[in-house]
Design a protein around this nucleic acid. Structure first.
Lengths: 332, 332
DNA sequence: CATCGTTGGTACAACGTTGTAAATCCGCCG
DNA sequence: CGGCGGATTTACAACGTTGTACCAACGATG
């Protein structure tokens, strides 16, 4: 593998001059520039990023910590983060935590400043004090969950409002017994969505029905199916369900179908995330559609700002847009 | 950020002694070892991987080139590769090509030995000579597509056999007009699956019906829907479809439902890949289920072998197991 | 013609780590 | 007590890059 030294020897100039050409420095005699460029081409020179970063004190890498790539929301998001990072010539290192606090702590503590310039994290189980213990020494941007009392930039949508809009939609269709699937003791986003759910009920003058609020420990399809099965076994089942993500909704859809419950006539279902698959389910899924590209772009931008030196800026909490995507699981 | 030098100063020893402790060298006086360890702990020292790798000539990174993380198959696969790589203390750098030859070429050529120790690639559009042009100088393992005349390790399933088994299944259900969706002029895997399709028809004494073989330029849900719409508009539509991946099948499922065609009674559908979502579609999807974990593990192992020095080993082509997952899109 | 600024080029050091070879220490043997 | 040999430690160089400081050549300016 060719190094600057090799190229310099061939071109008959100093190492630094080659470096200057490679880095687009202006003042190089055209003749020398040409010779260097030829030498570069003939050797197929590629800079050794390790060495360059060692010198520059930057690594060229961003970390991306998320629960699981096989979860569509995170797969889609990761793809968009990769794209946004690429536009700024960053490579992305992805770390999966499977949503366990243990692995999230490990990952956080492994986030040395030598490995990455900054990280985008999507924690599910981290506690406030984990951040203090393990302060990784690089800028972080948090997605989704918002651990409030930690001074870290955050990007996400207004979960309360989004949930409210979803439930309002169900109410506007005449539904009155509206269930919620996805309550979770630790998750902030779950609490917020539950808030929105309750406030929408309240503003419509509907009394909350506690047994229609179901928890979900994980947000997978199986959990949604399980919850829906439980709801349908109630003496008085709901006429609509707001699921805290699309996977839960897809599971719910299936459980309903298996029991001959018609969606949307007997049971309207709204999801959250707008996974690609949700436009193709049968029936297609009405869902809250966050602007994932905006989330990815914003996260990378915030990180850029911090890395560029804004260490003592106040932590920002950026809210990205979302919309309600109305499909056949609520309106035939 | 603490460096070896800082730690050395605190512990009152030389840099090298600290390095020795960090790297588990045996002959360090217990007393010094203790002092160094304390200093390490008190500074929270973390090795600068860039510098270490510069010195060692290795990077600790694996590349993973794939079309799109938002495609469930690749999202799931990427997750498994990350896990397999992690077991050998490798970090993984993911690069998305969107399946374009242009970006695949770029990625391949950017795969300098400085950045990664080896790469797992899942090309869709690369030509044989691209590999010669751009020989990245690090070991590669290819997944899925098999560009035959390139001497590179390959991992995948027996596509011909898998397709044959899928189509046999349809035939065993009494279907006689069996369509195929996913033919593609360049893709090797498409050609192989088409082979399997034809050979299954032949062994059952069924004459191939050319207009039932539909191409798909991309393998997304929309392409499947489009193809199915086309099939249903034929004067004599098929009674079964073999789709070359699950996304096509999901699209086909939807197109059928939209036109009131009952699956599986009027139309049986088989997919390929066993995406997680396919167990939850309505009806659930019969599909070829490759052992994705085995693919990921095998790919990482092959890479390990090469990186460990086996440069002049003959290229291997490992076939991983698969099964036919029978669900309600063929059997009610 | 002396001075200056601009352009073009170079040598050197440094980033943090580890391999090599050489230095130092120590107990023990003769 | 001199020296031997292993244990322990160290100085130094090197990995490939780039920032800094400096040097050289040149035309223009006064």
């Amino acid at each position: 593998m060719a190094t600057l030294k090799d190229v310099a020897k061939i071109a008959g100039v100093s190492v630094k001059t080659v470096s200057n050409v490679v880095n687009g420095y202006d003042f190089v005699k055209p003749e020398n520039r040409k010779r260097v460029e030829e030498a570069l081409a003939s050797t197929g020179y590629r800079p050794n990023l390790g060495a360059r970063n060692l010198r520059r004190g930057r690594t060229g890498f961003l970390g991306l910590m998320l629960p699981e790539l096989s979860i569509p929301y995170f797969g889609e998001l990761a793809g968009l983060v990769l794209q946004a990072a690429q536009e700024h010539e960053w490579n992305v290192l992805i770390e999966q935590t499977l949503g366990t606090r243990e692995r999230e702590r490990n990952t956080l503590s492994a986030l040395g400043p030598h490995l990455i310039d900054g990280a985008i994290i999507s924690p599910e189980a981290l506690h406030t004090n984990d951040f203090e213990d393990l302060a990784p020494g690089v800028p972080l941007v948090m997605l989704g969950e918002h651990v409030v009392d930690v001074p870290i930039d955050h990007v996400g949508i207004d979960n309360v409002q989004a949930a409210r809009i979803a439930v309002r939609h169900l109410i506007s269709l005449g539904r009155r017994r509206i269930a919620a699937i996805g309550a979770h003791p630790q998750r902030h986003t779950a609490a917020q969505r539950l808030d929105g759910y309750h406030s929408a009920l309240e503003e419509a003058g509907l009394a909350p029905i506690p047994e229609l609020v179901l928890p979900a420990l994980r947000y997978h399809r199986a959990n949604g199916a399980e919850a829906m099965a439980h709801l349908l076994a109630l003496p008085e089942p709901p006429d609509a369900v707001f699921c805290f993500n699309d996977l839960l909704a897809i599971g719910a859809l299936r459980a309903a179908a298996e029991r001959g419950v018609q969606v949307p006539s007997d049971m309207a279902i709204v999801g959250f995330d707008n996974n690609e698959e949700s436009a193709y389910s049968l029936p297609s899924l009405t869902t809250i559609a966050p602007d994932k590209a905006a989330i990815a772009r914003t996260a990378v931008d915030l990180l850029r700002r911090r890395i560029a030196g804004g260490t003592d800026l106040a932590p920002e909490d950026v809210q990205t847009p979302f919309s309600l995507e109305i499909r056949n699981s609520t309106v035939a």
